[in-house]
Design a protein around this nucleic acid. Structure first.
Lengths: 219, 219
DNA sequence: GTTTGTTATTTTCATATTACCACTAACAAA
DNA sequence: TTTGTTAGTGGTAATATGAAAATAACAAAC
């Protein structure tokens, strides 16, 4: 049976930089659209990849050097007009990573673009980005997702600011902190207290067994 | 480029029957697994289908006669071990429909099975069903989704019972009704009052522009 | 006609939760 | 010792919730 469908994965990789939600874009090496900024992506290799998640991991590793950030399937985009090469199907993923893990490299030339100002992208990549940003914002209202944009250890204030940056709204400090016992995806790291110029703050980490914790109600 | 990936769609079609959430299964006509119960599904036809949603609509029409029930992409399942024919990828959809639209037909031989007692299915169809049931239950806590399991017009009591059947918990009557102004996906149909043996009830319909209304908080 | 049974819909009210704002605590540097 | 800044806690009025009772509208029985 001959289907002639191009099957690929694309990844929207989010990070938080300068108080803004940004995504990773890179210049395409090959046609179509060689030289243009686009999402990291690539063909699914039936001989190499266990499943499409493995394809996404491979693409992330090859194009950004990342090993295991938070990675979740987003949506599958398909049709005859999205790629000039013909009918295509792309399983889109989105990933979250702390800025510090995006190390510039001579080999890997990627760029960070604010979600609020993503340029025109080839294929239907703008649609994919919009879809991913919406998913991230929606899910951030009731899950622990934003933790993955922070470093291993972080303070409650930093976590609250992360939620605020993603959601674009100010949250109440005492409400946010009162919710924490309920949201038991955090664990305080007793020995680690961040010293700064001012009052030191308790450091927390995301519990490894709670990488995606869902809570009812809103943050 | 030769990928040798089988690309298909599968649909989990839900309905509410005898107070139970059920899905449509049908006997496979062809190998592999000819004669076994499985989800309605089929290849994506790059020459016929605008996109994978169109494939799902076509499959639903051909195998169940349904035209436009609520239909939403669920998840994409892929890998080398799910189909004996080789590396395959299936874009799974789920659909909701009122029981009355599932008309038995000499041509279309499908069966209704309670979600709570789905038999062993070929491929990874049990996994797909579980995923769909979870999605439906989760989303029913904060959306208007359950409306699609009801007929065009329904009473508030019927709507509440539908939520209760899906979620498997009893809901408070007055709380449910108080939420309605907030949940403005319903519109009362002033002329239509259902007459029964007892006090007649106001009939409502789902606002056509609010087929999937999301509300924060829980039902 | 009146009563009774049943379902629809609203009201009441005690309790729990939330939003908002003010307060106290701990540190460095002036 | 004072001041500035960030961390963390408390108090309260408004709002939402959960449980139950009250009221309303009908058919059928009496």
């Amino acid at each position: 049976m001959e289907q002639n469908i191009i099957v690929s994965v694309d990844v929207v990789l989010f990070t938080l930089s300068e108080g803004q939600l940004k995504i990773v874009l890179l210049r395409r090496e090959r046609d179509p659209y060689a030289g243009q900024l686009a999402l990291p992506g690539g063909y699914i290799h039936a001989d190499k990849d266990r499943d499409s998640l493995a394809s996404a991991e491979r693409v992330l590793l090859n194009k950004t050097g990342l090993v295991s950030p938070y990675l979740e399937q987003l949506y599958t985009f398909s049709g005859g007009v999205r790629d000039p090469r013909g009918w295509s199907l792309s399983v889109a993923y989105y990933a979250l990573v702390h800025e510090s893990l995006l190390v510039p490299d001579a080999e890997l030339r990627f760029e960070l673009w604010p979600v609020a100002a993503v340029p025109d992208l080839p294929f239907d990549h703008n649609r994919i980005v919009d879809h991913a940003a919406k998913r991230l914002r929606d899910k951030s209202t009731y899950t622990s997702l934003p933790c993955h944009l922070l470093p291993e250890l972080f303070t409650l204030t930093e976590l609250q600011q992360t939620y605020e940056h993603i959601l674009g709204v100010a949250l109440d400090k005492s409400v946010f902190r009162r919710k924490l016992p309920e949201l038991d995806f955090l664990e305080a790291v007793p020995d680690a207290i961040r010293q700064g110029k001012h009052r030191p703050a308790q450091l927390y980490r995301l519990r490894p067994d709670r990488r995606l914790t869902i809570f009812d109600k809103t943050v």
